[in-house]
Amino acid sequence: MEKKDENISAMSTVAVGEAGRTGDWRDLKPVINHSKCIPTVKNKAACYLCWLYCPEGVIKTGIPVEIDMDYCKGCGICAEECPAKAISMVPEGDNDE
């Protein structure tokens, strides 16, 4: 039998990707040039301003810095705020990293 929800009033449960794969909203994608990125260059946890200012919380503060492209909406704030100019916004479909 088809499973039904038992809720008698509307209440949602938590999940990632409520609006789907919001990465699909992008026209431009952020591409990190790790040779300029401070944590990679210094080989220690540092800077991470991209992480600080990303409105989606999709940047991981590791070495190297990583972006979850499934959900990055491509706003470009990280590129604007990167003090080392290590992030460039490139059109979707361009593969040059």
């Binding site: 401070i38 301003l49 499934d70 959900y71």
Partner: peptide, 29 residues
Amino acid sequence: MPENLFKVKKEEYMLPGNRACQGCGLSLA
């Protein structure tokens, strides 16, 4: 780098893939 950045919780409680517009100031806050 603001050195106190590391005191902020790494866990996210507002999850990715939500419906806020690109670059939404509310969403960052």
